[in-house]
């Protein structure tokens, strides 16, 4: 397991990447990206059994990760680059013409680490379940992880997938929902309240864990626990509480920073709050 100080430095650097990428092209989604920084950093650093050097689409014998809420691509791209999937310098091409780093993740240009396009919401859980069943057919005991947004649970397909995974005992999947309580039009509770999310997933037949998504140690402990729950005949879901915009004070406590870029002054403020650790791209 990675030392806490190293993980903290890495998350700080990834926050800088996120803000700089979005600033560089004056578009993208910083809020949800910042909120999921600890989760994705810990997942890739300490949890996934993966081999970035030998990445393949099929990923046989490796744990797979799918990002269903594709709009938080800045954090995923940064985490992938910082784990050696592709050169860190490539982060500077985010959302620009001829880049492999599309606004929402795509497989078209064979960006290592990305196995399916995402962005149109509600589809990632189904894809992850398919990949998990493919692993079972291959007698491959590695696991499949997927991250969804909380607003995404308003999509009906999520519940089709939830029903299916439990019915078919897809127990090699660990899904996480980012409960940041925000979506484009405002607070989830104002747009379309999700109700008792934990009871809903349990009623659908999932094992449900709760996690403090911005607490590195809690993320790691919960993900390790989730792994012990696999192979028991039920799929596993982690309800992850996060703060949208976490680590950049003026981006927190609001849905406003879901999909807008900072100006020069705001960029400087955000970077001052997250000083260079490993080095900028």
């Amino acid at each position: 397991m990675t030392e806490l100080s190293i993980l903290k430095d890495l998350t700080t650097q990834i926050r800088r990447d996120i803000v700089r990428m979005v600033f560089g092209v004056q578009s993208g989604h910083p809020g949800g990206s910042l909120g999921c920084t600890e989760f994705l950093t810990v997942l890739y650093k300490d949890i996934l059994r993966h081999d970035p050097e030998n990445w393949s689409m099929d990923g046989v014998g490796q744990d797979l990760f799918f990002l269903s809420n594709g709009h938080i691509s800045p954090v995923w791209y940064s985490v992938l680059a910082r784990h050696g999937y592709f050169p860190v310098q490539e982060l500077g091409t985010f959302r620009k013409l001829n880049s492999r780093l599309q606004g929402h993740p795509a497989t078209h240009d064979h960006l290592p680490g990305v196995r399916v396009a995402s962005g149109s919401l509600g589809q990632g859980l189904s894809v992850a379940i398919g990949a998990a069943q493919s692993k079972k057919l291959n007698n491959d005991d590695s696991l499949v992880y997927v991250l969804m947004g909380d607003g995404e649970m308003q999509e009906g397909q999520v519940w089709e997938a939830a029903m299916y995974a439990a019915a078919k005992k897809v127990d090699n999947i660990i899904a996480t929902v980012d409960l940041n309580g925000q979506q484009i039009d405002g607070a989830t509770n104002d747009v379309l309240p999700l109700g008792d999310v934990k009871s809903k997933w349990e009623a659908f037949g999932w094992q449900v864990l709760e996690m403090e998504g911005n607490d590195i140690e809690n993320v790691r402990a919960t993900l390790l626990k989730a792994r012990t729950l696999t192979g028991l005949g039920q799929p596993t879901l982690i309800l992850m509480k996060t703060m949208m915009g976490n680590g950049v004070d003026f981006m927190m406590h609001s849905h406003k920073w879901h999909g807008i870029a900072p100006n020069d002054e705001q960029l400087q403020k955000a970077l001052d709050q997250n000083p260079v650790t490993i080095g900028d791209y």
């Binding site: 099929d58 399916v116 990632g124 379940i129 398919g130």
Partner: peptide, 12 residues
């Protein structure tokens, strides 16, 4: 919808 997603995932 779920069936199409699962099919996509199974190719992996």
């Amino acid at each position: 919808a779920n069936m199409m997603g699962i099919a996509a995932g199974m190719t992996i």
